[in-house]
């Protein structure tokens, strides 16, 4: 078999095989629309998150200084971008729903759905700002 070049340039290989279903908030859609050059990478990341939403690359968020982000997860994307999402299944099973940590009222049916809700996407300024000490 010769090298299959079409697979290197064709549609995404992993599409349609994810155990979790992806939905996006209007804000996520708007934010992603502002970075059209990243849509392909976002698609690949979506596939990966829908394949393994609890992968070690993601992190469960906590209560921040500006806003309470408990119950949501984030995944970093090279280029100083961050994706914030919630997993319906985790929300129900871990009791986040009872604690009212996630309030995706427009979609939640209180069932542990295999669904990833993409809430927010945007550029962060931490690495560019270099306000964190890298070296010991």
């Amino acid at each position: 078999m010769q090298i299959d070049l079409s697979s290197l340039g064709g549609s995404l290989l992993l599409s349609g095989r994810q155990p979790y279903h992806a939905v996006v908030s209007a804000e996520f859609q708007r934010a992603a629309g502002n970075h059209k050059e990243l849509l392909k990478r976002l698609e690949v990341l979506r596939d990966r998150i829908c394949q393994a939403p609890y992968a070690p690359q993601s992190e469960l968020l906590g209560r921040g200084k500006k806003v309470d982000l408990r119950g949501k997860r984030s995944w970093h994307m090279t280029g100083n971008f961050v994706v914030i999402y919630a997993v319906c299944e985790e929300r129900v099973q871990q009791g986040f729903l009872q604690k009212r940590w996630n309030s995706c009222a427009g979609i939640c049916d209180a069932e542990p759905q295999k669904r990833v809700v993409f809430l927010g996407f945007g550029k962060h300024d931490l690495a560019y700002g270099r306000d964190w000490q890298f070296r010991p």
């Binding site: 906590g62 806003v67 914030i84 809430l119 927010g120 945007g122």
Partner: peptide
């Protein structure tokens, strides 16, 4: 640290803040 990163992203934070009032669509 992840929370800090999220808080330094206005775009991502806006989505998380407005989630309860948002409309959702399949990707």
């Amino acid at each position: 640290a992840a929370t800090l990163v999220a808080e330094h992203s206005e775009g991502a934070l806006e989505g998380a803040r407005k989630a309860c009032r948002s409309t959702f669509r399949p990707w």
